[in-house]
Simulated scan of single mutants.
Amino acid sequence: MSAADSVFSADNAPFLPRRRIDSALADCSNEEMPESCGIRFTSLFKSSAVMVGDVRCRPADGACGCEECSTMDDIAFVRRGVFVKHLGTRQVVANANHAVFFNRDEVYRVSHPVAGGDDCSVFWIRRDLLDSVAAAHDPAASGRRRLFAVPEAPVANSIYLSHLELMRAVHSRHLTDIAVEERVLALVGGLLQSIHEVRGAPRRTRRFDTDAAHADAAARVRNFLSAHYAEPLGIDDVAEAVHLSPYHMCRVFRDRTGHTIHGYRTQLRLRAALARLDEGDDDLTRLALDLGFSDHSHFTTLFRRAFGVSPSAFRAGRTRSLRREMSKTLQA
């Protein structure tokens, strides 16, 4: 079995209902639960300071689940699939373009609008350390009861790659405990810094109902793109699916996410490609066509532009030195 298979498969881990994942993070419980619960958790690393876990969800259907409550502050990076976190009437679409935050004592529900469930990497940092990391980038976070002021945030390519490299390094067990702890703190620090920078940008003042309607519209588009990113759809197709006019949809989506619809879809395609290459997919032409790229050349150009290395080099050079070089390129 390859390293990728062993990192991102959890064949020996227990299925847990989502509301009990936080408890598993805290005690690395191996308590057996029936597979119908649909969620499998694997603890990859745990110290007194940080925890790294893998969560794979395979729900029986896409319906909104029962009410749940977080017992910890943690962050999830989606590697595959999509889920929706329901906070009252607000819907937070979680896919590979976004990190999702869970505040302690936060009540929510989860649904899966796309068949196949999701695979996520989950990171927990002890609260006093997390407070200090957050305060370094957002002074207003210090002492805040709900540490994460936003339910999700876009993830830059450099941070997303760092997260994948960290997951692989943790699984390889070649790092000392302190090295893992340092890298988790650096990863979360980089993510929180990017959030603060985005939130620091001025935005027009809107009525609450208008703002809520725009947030809902953007969420519907993200939800649809998460399910159909590989399909050759035009703007009219997307607008019709989410019941918006094309112009209004494009304007609201860019205002809410900072992306064009085309750019957001391309990023989803590229991150799906990254996941498949990381798991050993070796037919680049078939991969490109499967994900909706016009041809191998177009795919290679966009992949290199996004990640600083060609798909073939990424596939062939799955070593720590190459990943480190990629991170340096992206951070430059």
Rank of each mutant, 00 (worst) to 15 (best):
G53S: 13
V150H: 08
V55F: 15
H296E: 14
R127W: 06
L164V: 13
A218V: 10
G88E: 10
I39L: 08
V52R: 08
S111L: 04
R276L: 12
T89V: 12
C250R: 15
V92Q: 02
I125W: 14
S23F: 13
C37G: 00
L166T: 01
V242D: 08
S158D: 12
G117F: 03
W124P: 02
V78L: 08
C120H: 02
A169I: 06
W124G: 02
R109H: 04
P202T: 07
K328P: 01
T329K: 09
R19L: 07
H112P: 03
G258D: 00
L164N: 09
S48V: 09
A316V: 00
L284A: 11
E325I: 02
R146D: 11
R126M: 07
S310V: 04
V180S: 02
L268E: 09
R90G: 02
H86L: 03
Q91A: 14
H163L: 07
G143S: 04
C28I: 05
A94S: 13
D27M: 01
V242C: 07
S9N: 12
G292M: 07
S327V: 10
D27I: 03
P139D: 04
P232L: 09
S194R: 14
L277F: 01
R286F: 00
V133I: 15
S297H: 12
R271D: 02
P202L: 11
H86F: 00
D131Y: 10
D283C: 05
V100P: 03
Q193E: 13
F299T: 03
S142D: 05
L44K: 02
S245W: 09
V242Q: 07
R58A: 04
P246E: 06
P151G: 04
R79M: 05
D283H: 08
F8Q: 02
A3F: 06
L274P: 02
A217Y: 07
V188P: 01
L302I: 06
L187N: 09
V242S: 06
L287C: 06
K328Q: 15
R220E: 15
A96K: 00
T71G: 09
A60Q: 08
F299R: 00
M33I: 04
V188H: 05
F314G: 03
I261Q: 06
T285Y: 08
D27K: 01
F15L: 03
I261L: 10
S297Y: 12
S132H: 10
A179G: 09
V198Q: 13
L287K: 05
A115T: 05
E106L: 14
